[in-house]
Design a binder for these strands. Structure first.
Lengths: 143, 143
DNA sequence: TATTGTTATACTCTATAACTATA
DNA sequence: TATAGTTATAGAGTATAACAATA
């Protein structure tokens, strides 16, 4: 196949943002396949560990996940005995979320895998560039 | 809702890459809603304009779109008389792609809208930071 | 009345297998 | 046999409406 030109896309932030995100997420998927964790499940485990006892709605909202879509995700984490829905004391409508011992153990392994990915990125694009990248991306989110 | 902590995600390239990409694509969608063009349709119009007469497969591959998924996308562009499938001379299996006059006209408006988005991004994060961002994202794609 | 968790549902993206017509 | 375009289909991911229990 002869080369196909894509002149206008070659300097577009949106285009490279999408391609870079796909590349990093594919690498993430490779590293996490053994742990059987999707990005959404991984960030959910982090959010629960950092905020034990919080309501489903709060955790879901913080992660940008709609409440209805969070139900099946939690069902699966509970089925695998990684997280639990426990009674929320005062409000009997709410579920308080907590990690199990197995959940904390798996999260520890996942955090190690994530750390390896961050190190690989640092090695590939450079330490300073990585810090600049994260800083710029954070400003872009407010955009 | 009290604040929810997300310690570990706060310095992760993958996390901010995803959030920034969502923010930029939401802005893109707002700017392109009047043109009724998705990112995939927009980049397809660019690819066809830059490579008139090329086969479907080549254009799809250059955009990272699987051949089966490219069919409906092209059907829609043809239905709206923005692009055409024409006979490809030698090989009677292949379709050569071209933009119509209407397609070129709409693409011109789309490119203007994209240019406005790029200007807005430059204004928000700064000229030099934007160039550094694109350069870093391109290196990240090889990752 | 409003909110929490849930069910049902639908729409978009993306992926694969297999067909047809040509090569 | 292999390739170009196509069909059918299935799986994620994400969106909304509406319900039961509770506030």
């Amino acid at each position: 196949m002869n080369e196909v030109k894509l002149s206008t896309l070659d300097d577009a932030v949106g285009y490279w943002l999408r391609r870079a995100q796909l590349a990093v997420f594919e690498d993430f998927a490779r590293r996490f396949v053994a742990l059987e964790l999707t990005p959404a499940q991984f960030s959910t485990l982090i959010a629960i560990r950092d905020n034990p006892g919080r309501r489903q709605s709060d955790i879901a909202a913080a992660l940008g996940i709609r409440r209805p879509n969070f139900v099946a995700l939690l069902d699966e984490l509970e089925r695998r005995r990684l997280a639990e829905r426990t009674p929320s004391g005062a409000d009997r409508r709410a579920n308080a979320l907590r990690l199990t011992g197995a959940g904390e153990a798996l999260l520890a392994r996942a955090l190690a895998a994530q750390h390896e990915q961050e190190s690989a990125i640092r090695a590939h694009i450079g330490e300073a560039e990585r810090d600049t990248l994260v800083a710029t991306l954070r400003r872009l989110v407010e955009f």
